[in-house]
Structure formats: structure tokens, C-alpha cells
Amino acid sequence: MVFALFMIGTTFSVANATTRQSATTLARSAAVDEGRQIFLKGCSSCHGLNAEGGAIAPSLIGVGAADVDFQVGTGRMPMADMTVQAMRKKPAYTPDQVAALAAYVASLSPGPAIPSADVINYERDGNTAQGGELFRTNCAMCHNFAGQGGALSQGKFAPSLMQATPTQIYEALVLGPQSMPVFSDKILTPTEKLSIIKWIKAAQAEPAHGGASLGRVGPVTEGLLIWTLGLGLLIGIAVWLATKAR
């Protein structure tokens, strides 16, 4: 079943071996039915009974399986409240349910498929140094030079990348969710995307070499600490120095 569901996400754009065709088609329609049930219960109140969209939510026809995998798989959808931005949180659905939802949305109209494990083989195909260069030109202005995220306008923000999985990063680059722009495959080639993923994975694993990293956001937290804790300590010592011994 897991294998079949896994195949669902990948079979739409990839020509499949004809021998498996009938089996996958069956599994697909079962998953589509299950996904439709989940959709009707959990999503249709905003996105419409046929995913046609509504006053407060966009149409999902043609967004593809990758979009569902990203938005639901990171817990951003369903949204907790209608604020400026959907937040990353604990996913409301199990991976199987997310895959079924993705299959249902993908069955409405073709869209970007969930990248397969072979596509996401960043360890094999990525280059960390190149990824760093690409990250600094294309990503760092919003997501911070260390991938810690940063502020946008009106309360929106670019999220920290420290919890993002390789598949989610790849999907975000292809889809451009929420405020993020799209990074097309000709502008950032799939290999370049993998290099960026490899660099982000390296940044996630990077330990603090010089003690507390203070969030890796640069002089703001460093200044705050030194102006409060550092100066406070110095003032305390100055007071003690000037106090006469009893």
C-alpha cells in the first residue's frame, strides 16, 4: 500500500512501465477516493466542494500533488486561523492521508508532482559550495544568510529552514508557496536546486563553533545580549568596586 501510494505521486508525469499500469491505476483511484473524503471533511469549507476555491481560499485545480505535499505535509494547511501567513506546525494528517489528498488534488488537473527519492538524491548530485553561492544570491535575502528566516512586510516572514526536509525545500523552490517566488527549472536547474538543498542540510547540521549562536541572526541578538547582560555585569562590578568595605 505504501509503495502504491508512493507511486501515486510520481506516476503522473513519468511514463510508467506498462506492466504496472493497471495495478497503479487501481491503487490510484482508491487513493483518490480516500483523498476526496478527506478533502470534503477537512478542506472543502474554504477551498470549495470541488476544490474550485472561494472567497477566502484559492482554487486547487492544477496546483498538483507537490503543493498538497508541501502545504499539508508541513502542517501549514489546514490553517489554524486566517492570519497573514500559514504557519508551519504539526501536520494534521498522517503521511498516508497526505498522499491520498495529494492524489485527489492531482487527479483534478495535472500539476507539479511530488519529486521522487531519486530526484531528491542531493547527497549524490548536489555540490555544497555551489549551493552556498546559489543560496546567497537567491535565498539569503529573505531566509537569512544562515537559513534562519527573516521578516517581510506587514507581519509576513520568510520561515526558518532548520526543520525543512529536502523534499519540502525542493517543492518550495518549484512551487513558490505563499510569499515566495517560483524558481523555475531553467533559472535554477534541478541540479542547482539539489546543491542548495545540500547546503541547507549542511547548515542544519552545523554545530556552534564559538559557543552560543544566539539564533545566527547577526548583530541584533549579539548587541542585545552585550547591552543588557554584558553592561549589566559591568555596572554591577563598578558598584561593588565603589562600595566601602564594612
Binding site: G176, P181, F183, K186, I187
Partner: peptide
């Protein structure tokens, strides 16, 4: 054609 709607390029 390399740029989709919503895409950016440096």
C-alpha cells in the same frame, strides 16, 4: 519560456 508566472531570476 524559462520563467513561469510568479518566478524570479537574478
Amino acid at each position: 519560456s524559462d520563467l513561469e508566472v510568479g518566478a524570479v531570476a537574478q
